[in-house]
Amino acid sequence: MSKTIYILNGPNLNLLGQRQPEIYGHDTLADVERACAAVAAEKGFEIRLFQSNHEGAIIDTIHEARHSACGIVINPGAYTHTSVAILDALNAFDGPVIECHISNIHKREGFRHHSYVSLRADGVLAGLGVEGYALAVRRICSLCSK
C-alpha cells in the first residue's frame, strides 16, 4: 500500500498568510506543508501537497490519488459549498478522506454551513487553524496503518 498522503487545497489558499489574516492567520501554505511533512515522516509516511484555484485540476488530482495515495486531506475552500463534482471524485477514492477547514465554517455566513465534501469525509476538522492539517495527517496515518 502507498505511504503517500495527498493534501489538497482549493481556491485562494495560495494566498494563505496574506488574505484575511484575521480569519486564516499568518501561516503560509509552505508552513502547512512543513508541519504536515514532519508529522507524516514521524509516522513513516510522506505527503504531496497540491493547491489549485481550478476545480478540474483538483478533480484530476483526486483521480491521480486513486492510484498513488493511501489517504486524502482536503480543504476545498469555497468549493466545499458548491462542488458536487469534487464530491463525486472523492466518492471514487477508496482510502480515508479528512475534510479540513482553517476557520470554523459553522460560525460564518450561512452559505458556508453546508459541505458537499462532508458527505464523503471520514472526519471533519474546522476552526483549528492551520494546526488542523497536521491533526488530519496524523489521523490519516493512523487509518492507513490499520
Rank of each mutant, 00 (worst) to 15 (best):
I102D: 02
I58P: 09
L49I: 10
I58Y: 11
H101E: 04
R48W: 02
E109T: 01
H54Q: 13
G71S: 01
G56I: 11
N104W: 13
T61W: 08
E46P: 05
H106K: 13
V97Q: 00
V73K: 00
A37S: 14
F93D: 04
H63F: 13
R48T: 11
V39F: 07
A121H: 07
C36W: 10
Q51M: 05
G71M: 06
C36V: 00
D88G: 14
H114Y: 13
A78R: 04
G95A: 00
I58C: 13
R112Y: 07
E42I: 01
A38H: 03
R108N: 10
S83N: 07
V84N: 06
F45I: 10
V124D: 04
S115D: 13
E33Y: 03
A37G: 08
A78G: 05
L119Y: 11
S52D: 13
S52Y: 09
P76F: 02
I59T: 09
A89Y: 05
N104G: 03
E64W: 15
A85W: 04
S115R: 07
A38G: 07
R48G: 00
K43R: 12
F50A: 08
F50T: 01
C70L: 12
E64Y: 15
F50R: 07
V117M: 15
Y116G: 03
S103A: 15
T80P: 03
H54T: 12
A65Y: 05
L125D: 04
I102F: 07
H113F: 09
D88A: 15
T61I: 08
S68I: 03
E64D: 15
D94F: 10
P96N: 09
S103I: 12
H106P: 06
V39K: 03
A121P: 10
P76D: 09
D88I: 14
G123S: 05
D60C: 13
V117P: 01
A37F: 07
R66I: 00
G95M: 07
H106R: 12
D60N: 12
V39L: 01
H106T: 13
H63S: 15
R48E: 13
H54A: 06
V84H: 10
R34K: 03
R34V: 05
N75V: 00
I62C: 00
C70I: 08
A37P: 02
H106A: 11
Q51N: 12
V124Q: 02
E99F: 06
S103G: 05
I72N: 03
G110K: 14
